[in-house]
Write a protein that binds this DNA or RNA. Structure first.
Lengths: 331, 331
DNA sequence: ATCACCGATGTAAACGTTTACACGATAACT
DNA sequence: AGTTATCGTGTAAACGTTTACATCGGTGAT
């Protein structure tokens, strides 16, 4: 049977209230009694019952983390970032991924009302009506990790997709490239949309002509990248460089190009976005944008904990994580 | 304020005990009263306070998942598998990854005694004394995901590293390869050790000579694979095929080989282990062993929940997950 | 010397739920 | 008809912790 404050009280010859106060660092207890209690506690190897504590306090020190129904490297870094930060603040992390038996909206409803978590972080690739409605319930603080920070009056953490895509294009232009194609991500993904927008705006700023058939549609998978690039490799007028909206599609381009016996970057250059693990080791190594995934999780957790602690309940904050160009050998 | 059974009781004109019973499906309540309660509950949009429930029941429906301090694709699939299964059984999943501020052992101690989780799953690459001692505390049911199922009298879920490595070698022998090298993983990793053992035993069974300098040491990273293979590419007597203990090292070999202008598999063939995402898309696609990661998480969770429910408390089970050869173009 | 105040500690209520036990009513025996 | 199960429901205690309030002894001001 796990020791309780009652047993400590008996052992230390004080009341349970004093024990509770001593353990929680109330300054109203003498340092003697405090020492007494602490000794008794460590003698019994006491650990506070978190369930009881959360219950009586009417709030929970558990951070919920709601993930969409795909699993990749990206998520495990987010999880790690959140968990590390939460732990450092005395919180725990509960992961709720949606899957065939559970939608994001369901997860939100559950977490909002069963008292299990004191707040949550939710990853939303694209904000839709249902989710927004579910979030409006309020009651439990939350932070959104999203591609887009225009998500209503919510606290959000985003990457600077637009600016980074913009910078990537400017980098390419400075290198002398004039004929640039873009493979975009899914139409219902805000990261993808913003990257495309950054691409387009940078092109028009620098008077780069955008041919319609050089704006290719992809869906962030390797296959879709391969498919997309194959459409233009057959044509006479080829772009000099292809900027894929993520690394997976860029690597798909590698396949298509290399299986035709063409050379990267001599025949055609490639750049990506995300800097996934493999990009560094691809041949040639891929020029891309490094998204600071760990910082995303970290900052989302920090902001959430501010809200849960009541430290900082001011109006919604829009946090944007800087990301950096990683220049390698693919262009 | 979230509705409680008290309010339901008032609304339905019954006692809170009846409400509790009706909601928990006790057969001792009339279907009329049950209906009454259910109506009131849905009218108030009632959700049971999980914290209170767990607290009073003295047990938790939270599954702890303790991960080592690295993050990759593998883990997010495990997390997903565990979460999905847990959810289907009415449990929640809490992730505790160890990192600079928290060791595996600490995690175990915490989860064992603070009542937060009702059981946990722990990933252990290599069982050491400290961890074993921590686990011996008992009190909270747990399941180990490990490379090796010889981990004492514990419930474990493992992949059949040994057999799969064995099969891989037999496959290579059948293809006519006679000169086979192996790059092994870290010496303190049971998966790695068992794969190496499988390799060695299969070689001796099939009378494949094992040259000492063809037994290379790696540490599961791409760099280590590259480093290892470079040691033998300079020699006159080269192996025909290299069996790396994981895909990352196999891909490291790709780099080394291709940067020397050699061709895979014509000049030298490569095989790996794990079947990570990228292996399918590597050029040439990598022959490897597919580890059923999702099943690992799923079965670990199922076994744990059996124990938590008290359904099946019989002696420790050793579950071994089958994995399969994935034959592609690298050999 | 009296009073007010303060600081340290104790007492007891509260949180939402489950559940052992009590209770009354009805059904099923003799 | 009287006894006894049985069934549905209610009463109240219990879980471990926090915390508002009470208590008590001591200190300083008058």
């Amino acid at each position: 049977m796990a020791p309780t404050i009652k047993q400590i009280a008996k052992l230390a010859n004080v009341s349970i209230a004093t024990v509770s106060r001593a353990l929680s660092g109330d300054e109203k207890v003498t340092s003697e009694t405090k020492q007494l209690v602490l000794n008794a506690a460590s003698e019994l190897n006491y650990r506070p019952n978190i369930l009881a504590r959360n219950f009586v306090k009417g709030k929970s020190n558990i951070v919920g983390l709601i993930l969409p129904d795909i699993s990749d490297e990206f998520f495990s870094e987010i999880i790690r970032g959140v968990d590390e930060t939460s732990y450092d603040h005395g919180y725990y992390t509960m992961v709720i991924s949606s899957h065939k038996n559970r939608s994001l909206v369901e997860s939100v409803h559950t977490l909002m009302s069963n008292g299990l978590v004191g707040g949550f972080i939710i990853l939303i690739p694209f904000m839709d009506q249902k989710i927004e409605a579910a979030l409006m319930h309020e009651g439990v603080p939350f932070v959104i990790i999203s591609g887009d920070n225009n998500a209503g009056e919510f606290d959000t953490v985003t990457t600077n997709n637009y600016q980074s895509a913009f910078k990537m294009v400017e980098f390419l232009v400075n290198k002398g490239y004039k004929k640039i194609a873009h493979i975009s991500g899914p139409a219902d993904n805000n990261d993808a949309l913003l990257r495309k927008k950054g691409f387009l705006d940078a092109c028009s700023k620098h008077k780069i002509e955008i041919k319609n058939n050089w704006l290719l549609d992809g869906n962030f998978t390797m296959e879709s990248g391969e498919l997309a690039i194959n459409k233009i490799l057959n044509e006479d007028d080829k772009p000099e460089v292809i900027f894929a909206a993520n690394d997976m599609m860029a690597l798909g381009c590698y396949n298509a190009i290399q299986s035709r016996g063409l050379k990267i970057p001599d025949d055609i250059a490639i750049t990506g976005f995300d800097d996934i693990l493999i990009s560094k080791y691809a041949n040639p190594s891929l020029t891309t944008v490094k998204v600071n995934t760990d910082r995303i999780g970290k900052l989302a957790a920090e902001r959430l904990i501010e809200k849960m602690d009541g430290t900082n309940n001011k109006t919604a904050q829009k946090i944007e994580i800087e990301s950096e160009l990683v220049i390698r050998n693919s262009c």
